[in-house]
Simulated assay, not measured.
Amino acid sequence: MKNRLILSLSGNDIFSGGGLHADLATYTVNGLHGFVAVTCLTAVTEQGFEVIPVDGPVFAQQLASLKDVPFSAIKLGLLPNLEVAGQALDFVKKRADLPVVLDPVLVCKEHHDSEVSAVREELLKFFPYVTIITPNLAEAQLLTQKSIQTLDDMKAAAQALYELGAKHVVIKGGNRFDKERALDLYYDGQNFELLESPVLASNNTGAGCTFASSIASQLLLGESVLGAVKLSKQFVYRAIEQSDQYGVLQYET
């Protein structure tokens, strides 16, 4: 039986709605023991919301500290620059037999176009070594260099990401195409699966991190990739629905 050790390479969200905070909370709900190597800090400054990358040698020391921990799954979140992304890639390459979820966080308003382009090229190198990628629409557009305006465009982008090397893809569409339904699209190179849930009247944001870490959790627990995606969509829906309550959320049966 697999152990219940799971690792996130994620950023610190100063508002605790996403990043490593969302990852660890999700792992705890699933009965897993979460570890984190911190990729960046965040803060609100006079210039706005700022991402502060962890120094490369410090990130390298974090990974070296964890090299002998027998993780059963890995989730990758915000990789803020080429140095951190390159070190994360080297770490993952040595553990390509594990379930690995890549949430390719590319759209940060503090990034310049040149920085986004450079990190995009680095993220594409991860595709052969990860189990599934979970971009939102904006990230899928940046990764594929294709405009996504319709559901057919979304399918074309999923196919393009597969052709770029991703084994499984789920594009988070949200309510962009239908204000009443949150639509996500899964693709495995052969079949499409459209996943939908009602749009909740909520101000909660940052669900993408929770979605990706839930998928990683379910893969560790033995679910198929599509099964993990479906359970995770349900989990995020219930987490938002019950966001003003405390306690362990339960999956519907």
Rank of each mutant, 00 (worst) to 15 (best):
D178E: 11
K125I: 03
P128H: 08
Q149R: 09
L123K: 03
Q141R: 15
Q145R: 14
V107N: 12
R120C: 08
V84K: 04
A158K: 09
A140N: 11
L82E: 08
G189I: 08
Q159W: 02
K94F: 00
F59C: 07
H111Y: 15
T131A: 01
R120D: 00
K172F: 09
P70T: 08
Q145C: 11
I74T: 04
L185A: 05
V130M: 10
K67P: 00
L164E: 11
K94L: 10
N175H: 15
T131R: 08
P128N: 06
L143N: 09
R95V: 00
P70K: 11
V169F: 06
K125H: 13
Y129A: 14
L78A: 02
A88P: 06
V169R: 05
V92D: 06
D68L: 06
D152S: 14
A182R: 04
P104C: 02
K93S: 01
V101S: 09
A85W: 05
Y129P: 11
Q145S: 14
L66Q: 02
A158N: 12
I132P: 05
A88G: 02
E122R: 15
V105E: 03
D103I: 06
D97F: 09
L76Y: 01
L63M: 06
E180M: 09
G86H: 08
P128Y: 12
D153Y: 12
D68V: 02
A160L: 03
P99W: 08
D90Q: 15
G165H: 06
P80L: 07
Q190L: 04
E121M: 14
C108K: 11
L124H: 13
P128E: 04
L185T: 08
C108L: 06
P135E: 10
P80A: 06
L66P: 03
P135S: 11
A140R: 11
Q159H: 09
G86T: 10
